[in-house]
Design a protein around this nucleic acid. Structure first.
Length: 301
DNA sequence: AAGACGTGGCT
DNA sequence: TAGCCAAGTCT
């Protein structure tokens, strides 16, 4: 099927060229995209950006990089400091992962963030997305980078569907690889541009198709923008009253008290559900986000 | 491999 | 405003 392949390829080339032209002009000046940021700073940004919006990450990233400009700097601080600096960014285990990754980088990679995909994947908190993002954005290597924005852009513009289906790393990577420009610098820009397009134009709720740089190439638009027919992939559990909320509250009390430990019976004494409070404390200890000793609870030293 | 994991922005 | 959604990863 050489004809089909040629057609698809030509469309991919046109699509990437258009996206890149738009990105060169419209990219937000995010600090971790500056030319002189270190691979470590990029790694920190990618961990912080997991399931977390840019606007919330930016100030935390600035402070973090100023305080811990290298993996060695972070590795020499106790995990408690990392958890405290993480503050309310969410998913605080990421602070622990970053600390563990910094330690690993110092011990096994001479203090330099590795460039190799497998070495990156071996780091705590670094999965298929983050490993490729670091390799592509920090080192300029040509890898497909696929996040939720990219998945949605491909689903719409290329596949003509309103939303992406269930994530499938192998399929998603292959779909992006088929669009990726040959030239590494162009590939790098397209990886970032596809994400940016999904983040600011081709959004989940209210896509701004007027002003979309690839509107005339978009398969979903060409099909009349049909509504989403697929069932919701994963419905997110209610947060109010959840164990997650209880964990968050316990951890906040530990951060607020740090560096002092908190007597166990003074940890959220008025929490409405005592059993839930116990579960929260136990699971935080189990995750390494808290430590208990002599009847007191504290952040991990 | 389905579910757990924070917190806040946006519609 | 209640609910969806967010630069995913781990177990």
């Amino acid at each position: 099927m050489p004809t089909t392949a040629t057609t698809i390829d030509a469309h991919a080339v046109a699509f990437a060229a258009r996206a890149n032209a738009w990105f060169a002009d419209a990219a937000r000046p995010l600090p971790w995209r500056a030319a002189d940021v270190s691979p470590w700073a990029v790694l920190v940004s990618e961990l912080m950006l997991q399931q977390t919006q840019v606007a919330r990450v930016q100030p935390k990233w600035e402070a973090w990089i100023e305080r811990w400009p290298t993996p060695a700097a972070l590795a020499s601080s106790p995990p408690a400091d990392a958890v405290r600096a993480w503050d309310r960014l969410g998913y605080p285990r990421r602070a622990l992962w970053l600390h563990a990754a910094a330690t690993e980088i110092v011990e096994r990679h001479g203090g330099e963030v590795p460039r190799d995909l497998d070495a990156l994947l071996a780091l705590k908190g670094v999965g298929p997305y983050t490993a490729r993002a670091v390799a592509a954005f920090a080192f300029g290597d040509r890898h497909p980078v696929v996040d939720t924005n990219t998945r949605r852009v491909i689903a719409r513009a290329i596949e003509g569907r309103a939303s992406a289906g269930a994530p499938s790393p192998a399929r998603d990577l292959a779909a992006m690889a088929a669009l990726l420009p040959r030239d590494p610098a162009d590939a790098r820009a397209f990886n970032a541009g596809a994400m940016e397009l999904g983040a600011v134009v081709c959004t989940a709720r209210a896509p701004q198709c007027d002003g979309c740089p690839v509107a005339d190439l978009c398969a979903w638009r060409a099909a009349g923008s049909p509504p989403d027919d697929a069932p919701r992939v994963r419905t997110q559990a209610r947060y109010e009253g959840s164990d997650r909320q209880a964990r968050g509250a316990v951890l906040k009390s530990l951060r607020d008290a740090a560096p002092l430990a908190v007597p166990l019976d003074e940890v959220l004494p008025e929490w409405p559900d005592p059993a839930q409070r116990e579960r929260a404390i136990a699971s935080l200890i189990s995750d390494g986000l808290a430590e208990a000793s002599d009847g007191v609870l504290a952040l991990p030293g």
